Every structure is written in C-alpha cells, then in structure tokens.
Amino acid sequence: MKTIIYLMRELSLVKISYYFFTILNQNSHEEVSIINKYNVDMNDKITLTITRRKFSEILIGIVSLFLASGVVATLLKYLWPPSVKATSSEVRIASVDEVPTGSARKFMFNGKASVLLKMPAGFRAFGSVCTHLGCVAYWKPDENDIFCPCHLGRFDPNTGAVISGPPPSPLPAIDIIVKEGAVYALKWKDPEYVRSISYYAGAA
C-alpha cells in the first residue's frame, strides 16, 4: 500500500502508462529505473527500481481501486439519490397591469416554456410544453383553452387538465405570487409530477 501511495504521489498517470507499456516490452526479469527530478534547485534524485511483475501488480491494484470506487459510488447514488429541491428562485413574469383578464403572457421557468393566464378567478400559471410529444402549447382566448398545434391537444386554462386530444396528462401547474404590483413564479406545484414527465427533464 505504501508503494502504491508513493507511486501515485511521485508519478503522473501519463508517466505510469508510459512506463507500463515500456515494461511490457521487456523480459520479465528486467528492471526499469525511473528517475524523477523534483526541480532545478534540488540535487537529489529518486530512483525507483521495479520489476515488470511487481509493476504490473501495482498498476492492476490501482485500476481495481478506481473501478471499485466507481461501483460503490454508483450503488450509493442508486440507494440514496440526491434530493431535488422543490422550490426555485422567484421569477418575475410581468406586472399585473400587463396581463388583463382573458390574456396571457409567455415566460421561461426552470428552462421550460410556460404561460401565465389571467382568468376571471385570478392568475394561473402552467408549463406550456405539451405532455404528448413536447410541442409548445399556447393560449387561445377565442376558444378559452390552452392549445397545442402539433396534435390538437387542448387544456383547461384554470386547472391545466386535458380537455381533448392525445395528451396523456395535464400541464404542470406553477405556484405564483402577486406582490408589489407584479406576478412572480415560485415553484412547481407538484415537483414529483413534473419529474415524471419526460419533456420536463431537469426542470424540477
């Protein structure tokens, strides 16, 4: 173990690889001397004499250690996945006066196209990426719904629920707050639901 630590400290991985292939081309009983100068101000030299077999054992040990570390890290990540924050920084969407009743304002939230609606009952906000095939839906005031032009999907502007068409699930809702005369997006109302939609990958 001391030898492995010493080699890792004194030699870069590039040097180790170079000498490894050099040793493989020599006889099994030949020895290789590795001379490493620390800097021009030092006169001492360190000479490491390692047989081909010993060097191979050390290198295999190092590789095995790295592989084992990767397996353990993957296992730990699977057993204890990193938590995902449900909250996000406030995102200013628009001033209250800019979105009169019956209108909408497009905006980006956590990297996804979204829409703010002003309904008679108040403001509503949803991710506007369609849950069918990922097209961007938009507000159609004349039909009072959120419409996806790709496959004619329609969503309820008050709840985000599917009204008609092929979308398999509702648009994800966004919690909002009105303060100081403006509307702000806070977080996804249901982060777990957002993570279940492939077209919203990385948004929650």
Rank of each mutant, 00 (worst) to 15 (best):
109 F>H: 03
106 K>A: 14
97 D>F: 06
146 I>N: 10
138 Y>T: 15
81 P>K: 06
6 Y>N: 09
15 K>M: 13
58 I>E: 05
74 T>V: 09
167 P>N: 08
15 K>R: 12
197 I>E: 00
47 T>V: 13
88 S>K: 13
166 P>W: 00
180 E>N: 15
195 R>Q: 10
124 R>D: 05
123 F>T: 09
133 L>T: 07
5 I>Q: 11
161 A>W: 02
197 I>W: 04
155 F>G: 02
137 A>F: 00
156 D>M: 01
76 L>H: 02
105 R>D: 02
104 A>Q: 06
118 K>Q: 11
36 N>G: 01
93 I>S: 08
7 L>Y: 05
201 A>D: 13
122 G>T: 03
149 P>H: 08
7 L>V: 08
21 F>C: 01
46 I>D: 15
37 K>R: 12
18 Y>K: 10
112 K>L: 05
152 L>F: 10
15 K>L: 14
92 R>D: 04
203 A>D: 05
89 S>I: 03
128 S>F: 01
161 A>L: 12
114 S>G: 11
62 I>N: 01
44 D>W: 07
17 S>I: 12
94 A>Q: 10
99 V>L: 00
133 L>S: 12
6 Y>H: 14
195 R>G: 01
90 E>G: 01
140 K>P: 01
67 L>Q: 06
77 K>W: 11
89 S>P: 09
204 A>P: 01
59 L>V: 15
2 K>R: 13
2 K>H: 10
125 A>P: 02
182 A>G: 04
30 E>W: 04
151 H>M: 12
190 D>V: 10
142 D>W: 08
79 L>T: 02
76 L>F: 13
14 V>N: 12
113 A>Y: 07
165 G>P: 04
157 P>H: 15
43 N>M: 03
